[in-house]
């Protein structure tokens, strides 16, 4: 493991199944995002136009995050590590948290 070959050539013979495990981790994350979005939509289903709008934005954020996660959760070869996807999916998580906080605070009046 110490060589640092950096190549993807031997990926198919990795006994640790690292690409497979990484794909499954992405799928679990997509699933968690979906659950959180479902909870946000339920919280936003009050009939108030503002709440509906916030819930709608949460669904858009969820859709964008899933589109980002998809290529990493599927595919056959090992996903290319790193890249912009990771900070963007984290940004989607932050956005969902802030939209949820907005819904909670809005419910106070």
């Amino acid at each position: 493991m110490t060589g640092g070959s950096g190549g993807l050539a031997g990926a198919g013979r990795d006994p640790g199944l690292q690409p497979e495990r990484t794909r499954l981790a992405w799928r679990r994350t997509g699933l968690a995002l979906s659950l959180v979005t479902a909870l946000a939509v339920r919280l936003g289903s009050t009939g108030e136009p503002t709440d509906t709008l916030i819930a709608g934005v949460a669904v858009l954020v969820w859709g964008a995050a899933l589109v980002l996660c998809w290529p990493r959760g599927t595919g056959t070869g090992p996903a290319r590590a790193g890249g912009r996807t990771l900070p963007l999916v984290a940004l989607a998580t932050v956005a969902l948290a802030l939209l949820g906080a907005l819904l909670v605070v809005r419910g106070l009046w």
């Binding site: 493991m1 110490t2 060589g3 640092g4 690409p19 590590a81 990771l86």
Partner: peptide, 12 residues
């Protein structure tokens, strides 16, 4: 460029 397995472990 590191061994890709390290990068994937970091990603997980």
């Amino acid at each position: 460029p590191p061994d890709y397995r390290f990068s994937l472990a970091n990603e997980r």
